[in-house]
Simulated scan of single mutants.
Amino acid sequence: MPPRDRERYHHGDLRRALLEAGLDLTRTGGPAALSLREVTRRVGVTPNAAYRHFADRKSLVQGVAEAIQHRMVARMRAARRASPATSAAEAARVQLRAVGLGYIHFALAEPGWFSVAFFGEPELRLADLSAPASPPAPFLLLVDALDAMEAAGCLTPERRAGAEWPCFAAVHGFAVLALDGPLQHQPRAAVDRWAARTVDDIITGLQQVRS
Rank of each mutant, 00 (worst) to 15 (best):
E20K: 05
L124S: 03
G12L: 05
V94Q: 14
F54V: 02
H10Q: 14
T26Y: 01
V116L: 04
R6T: 04
Y51W: 07
R27N: 09
S35I: 02
E38D: 13
L108I: 11
Y9N: 07
W113R: 06
L126D: 14
R125M: 09
G22D: 09
R80C: 05
V43Q: 08
A92G: 07
V116M: 03
H70D: 15
Q69K: 12
E7L: 08
A98C: 08
G112M: 06
A117L: 00
E38P: 00
F106N: 12
A67D: 14
G100H: 05
A109M: 04
E121Y: 00
A50I: 07
S83K: 13
P31T: 14
L108D: 11
I68E: 07
R125L: 03
E123G: 04
E20N: 09
L18K: 02
V39M: 02
A49D: 14
L14F: 04
R27T: 04
R8K: 14
P84A: 05
I68M: 07
A32P: 00
R93D: 15
W113D: 14
R80S: 11
A32G: 06
G63L: 12
P122H: 02
G63M: 10
E123S: 13
M76Q: 15
V94I: 03
A89G: 15
V73C: 10
F106I: 05
F114Y: 15
V116H: 02
R6N: 01
E7Q: 09
A65Y: 06
L36T: 11
E123Q: 14
R42L: 12
E110M: 06
P111S: 00
D13N: 02
A65K: 03
R77W: 03
P111L: 00
R16E: 15
V73S: 10
A107K: 01
S83D: 14
M76Y: 07
A50H: 05
A82L: 13
F114T: 08
F119Q: 12
L19C: 08
P47A: 10
L101E: 15
E66Q: 12
L23M: 13
A109S: 14
A85T: 08
V73Y: 06
G30I: 07
L101F: 01
P47K: 10
R6V: 06
T26L: 03
A78Q: 13
A50Y: 04
Q69Y: 09
F118V: 02
I68N: 02
F106Q: 08
R71A: 12
L19A: 03
R41K: 05
P47L: 05
R97E: 12
Y9G: 03
L108E: 11
P47N: 11
G120L: 00
V64I: 15
V64W: 00
A98N: 10
G30H: 11
S115W: 03
G120F: 01
L60N: 09
L34P: 03
F118Y: 14
I104D: 01
Q95V: 01
Y51I: 07
F119S: 09
H105F: 10
P84K: 04
E121V: 00
V73W: 05
T40D: 06
A67R: 15
F119D: 13
A67S: 15
M72R: 11
A88K: 07
D56I: 11
S59Q: 12
Y9H: 15
M72D: 08
R71G: 13
K58I: 04
